[in-house]
Write a protein that binds this DNA or RNA. Structure first.
Lengths: 136, 136
DNA sequence: AGAAATTTGTCCGTATGTATC
DNA sequence: AGATACATACGGACAAATTTC
């Protein structure tokens, strides 16, 4: 088969499927996702397509990827309030503002304001991650 | 030659070069960037690499891409204050919060707080774009 | 310490689909 | 309808970071 893509693009379908597994806890928070090759085999898609799907989830803050290690589900410090905190990797703009390297872990707090049930605004606050007290 | 890429990846070098042109006004705000094929020819890189470079700039809010039209420099309503306003396209998460389609134009206001010259936090507020008063 | 295997990152070339002009 | 331009998808190759042996 050549390269058909009617309706939804494949990478989005794949992202939707993986997102469902994250939301349903089939992939636990902090757990490693299947490798790109494993997903390639499962979804019968090329690596590029798989990587695009994962990039989508990364864009949503659902997963985090590290070179040579893998992609793992992001830990969501989310109770039931309207404020969610998560760890994200600095994009180029944030990196230059904070004077850190792109990809450095930052803390993002997201707050949602509503009006008559409708979302009025989304406020995201970024800060650098405080150094951990661990020291081997 | 196969695929040499020592030091900086090519897509980042290309993104840096285009960013410089945007900052220097060589590409005016609102103006269309060269097409992907033109950039492919200029930088002697494949389309995938060019697209990755443009994706980087899009991530920084510097440019905006429309299917079938092209990529143009984002209009920066930026005086000299610490608050910048720009138009961005909704990522999947924002789209679901605002109940709009991914890619819908949103208004982003970014504020930076500093302490002793160091950036302390970056606050980004997103709102839907108010309907224009135009009426054909 | 060092080599090998694993896994993600980058890059290329090509083909086809879809939106806009 | 045709030309132009971006979007999606495939497959292959090599680079770099991490883990495993």
């Amino acid at each position: 088969m050549p390269t058909p893509h009617y309706g939804q693009p494949r990478y989005r379908v794949i992202a939707d499927e993986i997102r469902k597994r994250l939301e349903h806890g089939i992939i636990a928070p902090g757990a490693l996702l299947p490798t790109e090759s494993a997903l390639t085999a499962e979804f019968r898609a090329s690596r590029g397509t798989i990587r695009q799907a994962i990039a989508t989830l990364r864009d949503e803050g659902l997963v985090s990827t590290e070179h040579g290690r893998g992609t793992h589900a992001t830990i969501q410090t989310n109770g039931q309030s309207d404020a969610t905190e998560r760890e994200v990797l600095a994009d180029n703009r944030l990196a230059s503002l904070f004077a850190v390297r792109a990809g450095t872990t930052l803390i993002e707090v997201e707050r949602v304001t509503r009006k008559n049930g409708q979302v009025e605004s989304v406020i995201r606050t970024y800060r650098t991650k405080p150094p951990s007290p661990a020291a081997p």
